[in-house]
Amino acid sequence: MKGWLFTLPWTLGFCAFFAYPLAQSALYGFSNIRLTAAGRKISPVGWDNYAYIFQRDIYFMERLRDFFVNTLFSLPVLLVFSLMIAMMINQKIKCKGLFRALFFLPVVVVSGPVLNMIISEGAASIPIIEQYGIYGLIENFVPSMIAAPLTYLFSQLVMILWYSGVPILIFLAGLQKIDRSLYEAALIDGASAWVAFWKITLPAMRGMIVINAVYCIVFLASSEINEVIALIRSAMLDPNIGYGIASAMAWVYSLSVALAIGLAWFLLGRAPKERATHAVILLQRRGLDAIRR
């Protein structure tokens, strides 16, 4: 009973401004909405809106595909970069706090209107890449299927690195939980730093990698410069397309994002072999704790 009381304000707000609008938009996805002087006219059309998206709309499916291909390419870059930075910050160096703050800074800056302006002024691209004609090089030597996302990756590199603030923090949290004496033990057994990374750090970071992958997908999918969202937004206000179809688009998009997250979870989260090593590490850790006590 007390529980209900505590959640009441949150539940009320959530229902009014999230759950109910969500249900409403699901309903709109199956209807045709016309805004007239007399008010909204809603007529049910069944699956027509979805049929329109999949069969007649030329832009939406293309952008949706582009988004997922681009995410597929930028996600590994983002994850590897964040892990590298997190590992470097986690070393015993001076001014640790300062570096942590610096890498988190873009999260504070690069949001909302500021981000739009930086992009529109072209400050988020690297001039050297264009100067040396790397795009041309890529397009000449790489099959066009991969070339497009590759050029996208290069053009978005700066943005992708700016996004790394939160993933770095999450990785840092994971790294700090690894017992340092594990590395010590590995070192005594003759393992190089390289081997220690693959055998200790990476298996221990598996959970964090999954969390980060999910976070990054959600972040990229709902970022303000996302082209699919821009398309849905413009479709919403376009009298030829209308809110019904735009709602259907939003649902198709959301469901595909959820699918992508499920896929990432499935691919990265489950690995029986690695789990075994993790268990070994846990056992070792417990043993060490026992010895210390």
Partner: peptide
């Protein structure tokens, strides 16, 4: 709800 596109609930 975390995964949902905010645009989808704009008009509702």
């Amino acid at each position: 709800a975390l995964m949902f596109v905010p645009v989808a609930v704009m008009i509702p």
